[in-house]
């Protein structure tokens, strides 16, 4: 007969031994009354310990959380991280899109309005200092410059405007869907709390 279970008793009862060791002990215990009694006593002790008086609460969960929150000092946020910058960029997407739409629409309508008003186009061009009246539209650099100087916009037709708005709207909706998905999973986590 090999050694008694000894100090391995607890690890054995808690299933914290390797399968090989568990088997070896089981084999030994099967024929050893001394160890059987030890195990029996230990099991009783564990049951006894677990039957503890319930913890008397001083505050409810919500009261407690409120107390803690009232004591929280603003903590300096974590220094800039790559993930943090990414997250910030991601959150800035809808704002950027919104501004792009407003910009395009404003420019578009302003350009058209100026065309409708007699002499409006000249007035608009004249109001921008340093812009030469004679612009060679075949020069791509000048076109880009003019894009930002409003002047070129009346040449934008309705279709271009609609397509641009559409692309931006689709991007916006896609962002909203992804955001909603993330929000759902966060809510599920919170509900699990």
């Amino acid at each position: 007969m090999s050694d008694h279970i000894g100090s391995l008793l607890d690890a054995y009862l808690d299933h914290e031994l390797s399968p090989v060791r568990m088997r070896a002990i089981e084999d030994h215990v099967a024929d050893c009354e001394f160890c059987q009694k030890e195990i029996e006593q230990r099991r009783k002790l564990i049951v006894l310990l677990k039957d503890a008086p319930p913890v008397p609460a001083v505050h409810s969960k919500d009261q407690f959380a409120a107390i803690i929150q009232s004591q929280l000092m603003p903590r300096p946020a974590k220094p800039w991280t790559y993930q943090g910058v990414l997250r910030l960029g991601w959150q800035a997407v809808p704002v950027a899109l919104l501004f792009t739409i407003i910009f395009i629409q404003t420019v578009f309508w302003l350009g058209n309005a100026m065309l409708i008003i007699p002499g409006g186009s000249d007035m608009l061009l004249g109001s921008i200092p340093g812009l030469p009246i004679e612009i060679n539209l075949s020069d791509p650099i000048q076109i880009v410059v003019n894009l930002f100087r409003i002047y070129y916009f009346p040449a934008w037709d309705w279709l271009t405007g609609i397509i641009a708005t559409l692309i931006i709207s689709i991007t916006y909706i896609a962002w909203m869907i992804i955001w909603w998905g993330q929000q759902q999973s966060t809510n599920n986590h919170r509900m699990a709390l």
């Binding site: 919500d62 407690f64 803690i68 903590r75």
Partner: peptide, 12 residues
């Protein structure tokens, strides 16, 4: 990141 509401959830 300093969100006290989120920490409140963790406390609860």
């Amino acid at each position: 990141q300093g969100d006290q509401e989120a920490f409140g959830d963790l406390v609860r």
